[in-house]
C-alpha cells in the first residue's frame, strides 16, 4: 500500500530520477512525465494525489500546467519546483492554488518534508 500517487513533470532526467530515488523508498508511487502535455495526458488516464511540476519547461510552463490541473482536477495538489524562484512567480503560483514551492537544488530531506506535509494535510 503506497503512501500516495505522485506525478513528476520535469524536462530534466536528473530531476525526475532524483525525485524517484528520494520518494519511492519513502513508500510513494511515482509516475514521470517529460513535459506539460505529457503530464496532462497521464492525468486524463489516472488520478494523482500530488503533482510536482517544474516551472520553466519548453512548450508549456509550470504555471500553465498548474492552471490546467486546478481547472480539471481540483482535488490534486500541486507543488512547483523552480530553478529560479522569484517573489512574483511564487505569489502567482500560490494564488493559482499551488500548495507550496521547492527551490532547486533541493535536498532529499527538503523534498520529503514538503511532500509529507502535503499528505499530512490531505489526510486530515
Amino acid at each position: 500500500m503506497s503512501k500516495g500517487k505522485i506525478l513528476v513533470i520535469d524536462d530534466e532526467d536528473i530531476v525526475r530520477l532524483s525525485c524517484s530515488r528520494t520518494l519511492v523508498p519513502e513508500g510513494y508511487e511515482l509516475k514521470m512525465a517529460k513535459n506539460g502535455p505529457e503530464g496532462l495526458k497521464l492525468l486524463e488516464e489516472e488520478s494523482f494525489d500530488l503533482v510536482l511540476t517544474d516551472l520553466k519547461m519548453p512548450n508549456m510552463d509550470g504555471i500553465e500546467v498548474l492552471a490546467n490541473i486546478k481547472g480539471k482536477w481540483p482535488a490534486t495538489d500541486v507543488v512547483i519546483v523552480t530553478g529560479y524562484q522569484t517573489v512574483e512567480t511564487a505569489v502567482k503560483a500560490i494564488k493559482l492554488g499551488a500548495f507550496d514551492y521547492i527551490e532547486k537544488p533541493f535536498t532529499p530531506d527538503t523534498l520529503i518534508a514538503t511532500v509529507s506535509n502535503v499528505f499530512k494535510i490531505r489526510n486530515k
Partner: peptide, 16 residues
C-alpha cells in the same frame, strides 16, 4: 535554470 537541475541531482544522490 540550467545549473540547478544538475545540482539537484548531485545533492540528492550525494545524500543517498
Amino acid at each position: 535554470h540550467e545549473i540547478n537541475s544538475p545540482l539537484t541531482g548531485i545533492v540528492t544522490f550525494g545524500h543517498l
